[in-house]
Nucleic acid binder design. Structure first.
Length: 334
DNA sequence: GAGCCGTGGAA
DNA sequence: TTTCCAAGGCT
């Protein structure tokens, strides 16, 4: 019986997904570290389907790390708008500037050096080292966690199982084709070894999958239950003067940091109204938006009366440059 | 180390 | 409708 990694690579040679940032397996072409890095950052907690258009747009506007490093902060934030987790965009630009200005445009080719860069954590450092530089690295993302947990029938719930999962992944990671192995594990998790209703009949590793043999593959990985999301409320203010809208750049840290938005009150259980200036505000309705750890309802107020706002400025507005929460409010006012 | 940080699609 | 979750990182 061939080794598991060899069988997985054979499967990958036939079934690898065709992705814009990927070099086909067995191709002689070397992947571009800039494109691998950009794709890996965009893919953090984000689906392939959601990333594709953003990746095409970014690489068209900024084809290499020097071009991206020279971009204005606001340009990059606007291009990232809608993709979520905006700290990634801030770190992306910070990382590009370090690589462009201090490393002569060359991404580091080792895990420890990659880890020092902003926005690159343990997963991304390992992924770039393996995929872009063909270095053996233990690449563990959510897909790999699920595949390995099932393969080894690890019943310890996440996140407590993480050390055991990493050790098991290390044990099956080959020295040859480490980048293809990592991508094969992730493709397997994304297309065969899915969270619900895994297609074990099609799996190249089915014969040595402990969870499948025990009949518990769909139940793994087990997870410690998460607390219910609390409800928060607030007020949002849309002030309009013809084609000009009162908008502000939100503070660099915290919720939606660095993005454009309409002025709001704080988001708490019992928010005080906080209009940017005194005026006869008219209530337009409510917008609801779910975040990772709370559910938000904002009451939307509108005025076309002039005033001296205590924050933000009047400017033309492209709704595509807004995060989704503010797009919803904008839609309510048009 | 546990909480914070978005979004849209699937079931 | 609600819940889950997707190539995680930062503090």
């Amino acid at each position: 019986m061939r080794e598991r990694s060899a069988r997985l690579l054979d499967w990958y040679d036939v079934h690898a997904r065709d992705l814009p940032w990927r070099v086909p397996p067995a191709s002689s072409a070397r992947p571009d570290p800039y494109r691998i890095w950009l794709s890996e950052v965009m893919l953090q907690q984000t689906t392939v389907a959601a990333v594709k258009d953003y990746f095409a747009r970014f690489t068209a506007i900024w084809p290499d790390v020097h071009a991206l490093a020279a971009a204005e902060d606001a340009e990059v934030m606007a291009a990232w708008a809608g993709l979520g987790y905006y700290a990634r965009a801030r770190n992306l630009l910070a990382c590009a500037r370090v690589v462009s200005n201090e490393l002569d445009g060359a991404f580091p080719d080792t895990e420890p050096a990659l880890l020092k860069l902003p926005g690159i954590g343990p997963y991304t450092a390992a992924a770039i080292a393996a995929i872009a530089f063909d270095r053996r690295a233990v690449v563990v993302d959510g897909n790999v966690e699920r595949v390995v947990t099932r393969l080894e029938a690890i019943e310890t719930p996440l996140p407590a199982a993480k050390p055991a999962i990493r050790a098991a992944t290390d044990a099956i990671t080959p020295a040859v084709r480490p980048g293809d192995f990592a991508q094969a594990m992730m493709d397997l998790g994304a297309t065969i070894c899915t969270p619900r209703s895994p297609s074990c009949m099609l799996c190249p590793l089915a014969e040595d999958c402990g969870a499948r043999i025990a009949g518990i593959a769909p139940d793994l990985p087990r997870k410690t239950p998460k607390a219910p999301r609390p409800e928060r409320r607030g007020h949002l203010y849309i002030a309009r003067q013809g084609e000009l809208w009162l908008i502000e750049t939100r503070p660099g840290r915290g919720m939606l940091g660095g993005t454009l938005g309409f002025p709001t009150s704080d988001w708490s259980d019992a928010p005080d109204p906080a209009p940017p200036f005194e005026a006869p505000w008219r209530e337009l309705g409510e917008v609801r938006h779910g975040f990772t750890h709370f559910q938000l309802t904002l009451t939307v107020h509108h005025t076309d009366q002039p005033g001296n706002p205590d924050r933000g400025a009047y400017a033309p507005l492209d709704p595509d440059a807004l995060p989704t929460l503010f797009r919803k409010a904008h839609a309510l006012a048009t």
